[in-house]
Amino acid sequence: MDAPEIVEINEVRDETPTVKTFILDKKIKAEPGQFAMLWMPDVAEKPFSFSRLGGNIEFTLRAVGSFTQKLFNLKKGKVLGVRGPYGGGYFRIAGERICVVAGGVGLAPLMPLIDRIIEENKKVDILFGAATEKELFWLSELKSKKNNVLIATDDGTCGKKGSVCDILRDQVAEKKFDQIYTCGPELMMKKVADLAVREKIPCQVSLERYMKCGVGICGQCCIDPAGLRVCKDGPVFSAKELQNTEFGKYRRDASGSRCSL
């Protein structure tokens, strides 16, 4: 196991009012869906999936808690500690007709996957849902690759009004997907995973849990009832593996106590 390596922030990009991308002065060879532990000295260390690989690594985050809020104050030239890449379960490319379902900032960990799908000249449908139009990002980039991009917003300010899961339901009825990939709020992913299992479409889900070590020993991020570790066996699991588990129901906090989603 490594100690964090100090890396400079090369650029900070605003994506939406609540989402920023941090481009770091470091290249890491990693797979789509893998993550790193980001350390902000005097604050904390938390896991984040890469939002861009290949060149300098990028992390695209939403300000949700005290850690990300403090991170958002960091400007170009400041430093972060990085250790990783971690995650034995990552997005694996399979099938020819691929559907990616993203909820909000859940698009970020899917981006290295989308890049790779496009590199392999495969067809991908991207279904992207957010609360409102202002929270959508990377739209022009997604569309420029001639992918089929369908949008849903909770308030109907862009695309279809409602959940991205509604679009998925319609698309699955129309098309024959070989593989679905999803990342977003857990209850959304649960709906996507359930639909995929029902329709017998292989589906890969990127899960988030409270992590302490990131290397598979502390046991904090284990999933009931099989004891799969999100940091080491995941963070990407097949929808099938997650059937009849705590996925979509509860998670554990820093103490190890269960809290419902």
Partner: peptide, 24 residues
Amino acid sequence: EGHPTPVVVGVTGGILNAVGLSCP
């Protein structure tokens, strides 16, 4: 809750940890 992260760090020949007796 135990100590705030980082609670583990790699060193030559092993790791240091200070999880801090977290428990429900």
